Simulated assay, not measured.
Amino acid sequence: MSIGTWILLITMVCFSGSALLIWYAAKTSGQFDDVEGVKYRMLEEESAVDAPIDAKR
Rank of each mutant, 00 (worst) to 15 (best):
I7C: 01
S16Y: 04
L43K: 15
S47L: 08
K27R: 15
S16N: 03
C14R: 06
D50W: 02
M12D: 06
Q31H: 14
T11Q: 00
Y24V: 08
Y24N: 15
C14I: 15
S16Q: 02
K56H: 09
Y24S: 14
I10N: 05
A48G: 11
F15V: 15
A26C: 14
D54G: 01
I22D: 00
L9F: 05
S29R: 15
L8T: 09
D33T: 14
C14W: 12
I53L: 12
G30C: 00
I22C: 01
F15T: 15
D50V: 05
T11E: 02
S47Q: 13
K39V: 13
L43M: 13
L21E: 05
A51E: 12
A19W: 12
G37D: 04
E46H: 03
T28M: 11
K27D: 11
Q31G: 10
G30D: 01
E44V: 11
T5C: 04
L20P: 01
M42S: 09
K39I: 12
K39Y: 13
L20E: 12
W6Q: 03
Q31C: 12
L9C: 10
D33M: 10
F32P: 00
E45W: 01
A19I: 05
S29P: 00
I7N: 02
L20H: 09
I10M: 06
M12E: 06
V38A: 14
I7H: 02
V49N: 06
I7W: 02
Y40N: 12
V13A: 14
T5I: 09
